[in-house]
């Protein structure tokens, strides 16, 4: 490390970007949710698709309660200020604090998110390494074809088919619910499969590229064996694109739970979101969007911290060409 100070500066810059992105995400969600339909209270007050219309007095009262009678820029300012202090407003459905609602729904979601991530890393990583390691052409082609098959399947359908086979057909696992470890297996698998497929595609492609690099040829010319080349030379070099995708995947886990929790009728953040959209509960939807981008930004900040460990060129500001 001949240049001290570059690494902290790199981290500081990343942190700054993360904060800016969060602020911007707040702004985007504000624009989408509060500006697009014109008058959010009317939308909210109609109670979604099947609610009773409210009287004008009730609407006025609501507007005052949520601050919609003020100019938009003032609303934006006060809401952003509140959000900075962790106050995301109150749900329209039941007046519950949005932050509280999200935190309450979180634990079961975190369970399948971790499960899904494990499935993605183990299956995706394993598949990519196996596919590039084997010298059997047919096996390689078969393994390489699996991920592109998996990303073409609708997630909700995969979940239903898994339920069909393992719950209704074989009676191995429960079809719905959130109690105990067995109930975690199918949702984690459903959540992890498409992400694992994505990871496998990127890692396999990256490994293939790296294995063609001249420095791998140098290693082979030294007499280094296949396995050692994979472990000592290829994996670390191929890891950067895969890590980028892993960050993306982990940041998108929340989004995946929207569908998965619906399929398996599990409680959690995903279900909360679906319900909130169903009744057009704008503060709650915005809360979820913000929380998701907080997770996304946090995960990617973590990924940014790992990059310099993997590639010494990044810490020094040298553009990595691989």
């Amino acid at each position: 490390m001949s240049a001290p100070g570059t690494l902290p500066r790199y981290l500081l810059r990343r942190l700054g970007t993360a904060v800016a992105v969060l602020w911007a995400a707040y702004t985007v969600s504000f624009v989408v949710l509060y500006l697009l339909p014109g008058d959010p209270v009317t939308t909210m007050a109609s109670g979604g698709l099947d609610g009773e219309p409210l009287t004008p007095e009730q609407i006025e009262a609501l507007k005052a309660q949520y601050g919609f009678d003020k100019p938009l820029i003032v609303q934006y300012g006060t809401r952003l200020w509140a959000a900075l202090h962790g106050d995301l407003g109150a749900s329209i459905q039941n007046g519950q604090d949005v932050r509280g609602a999200i935190l309450e729904a979180l634990p079961p979601t975190v369970q399948i998110a971790i499960g899904g991530l494990l499935v993605a890393v183990v299956l995706g990583g394993g598949l990519a390494i196996a596919a590039t390691y084997t010298s059997q052409r047919w096996l390689r082609q078969l393994l390489m074809a699996l991920p592109s098959l998996a990303v073409s399947l609708p997630v909700f359908w995969v979940g239903l088919m898994l339920v069909q086979v393992f719950a209704f057909g074989l009676h191995w696992l429960p079809s719905v619910g959130a109690s105990g470890f067995p109930a975690l297996v199918l949702p984690s698998l459903t959540l992890g499969l498409p992400m694992g497929a994505l990871l496998a595609q990127v890692l396999a492609k990256s490994l293939t590229t790296v294995l063609d690099e001249p420095y791998v040829q140098t290693a082979r010319a030294k007499g280094v064996g296949r396995a050692a080349i994979h472990v000592r030379h290829a994996l670390q070099n191929a890891a950067i694109p895969a890590l980028t995708v892993l960050g993306y995947v982990a940041g998108n886990l929340l989004a995946g739970t929207v569908v998965v929790e619906t399929v398996f009728t599990r409680p959690g953040l995903g279900r909360l979101t679906v319900q909130a959209v169903g009744v057009q509960d704008i503060p709650l939807v915005q809360g979820v969007v913000l929380f998701a981008s907080l997770v996304f930004v946090g995960v990617n900040l973590l990924v940014d911290l790992i990059y310099p460990v993997l590639d010494p060129r990044i810490a020094k500001g040298v553009p990595a060409t691989s």
């Binding site: 690099e213 001249p214 420095y215 040829q217 140098t218 290693a219 082979r220 010319a221 030294k222 007499g223 280094v224 064996g225 296949r226 000592r232 030379h233 670390q236 070099n237 993997l310 590639d311 010494p312 060129r313 990595a320 060409t321 691989s322």
Partner: peptide
């Protein structure tokens, strides 16, 4: 392939073409 490994590097050395890309960048 396995027997050849004992030859490469030990009995035949290689000086490759482009030094800028022929060394592992992360080692």
């Amino acid at each position: 392939e396995k027997a050849f490994r004992a030859v490469r590097g030990r009995r035949i050395g290689l000086v490759p073409q482009d030094p800028t890309v022929s060394l592992n960048p992360v080692q």
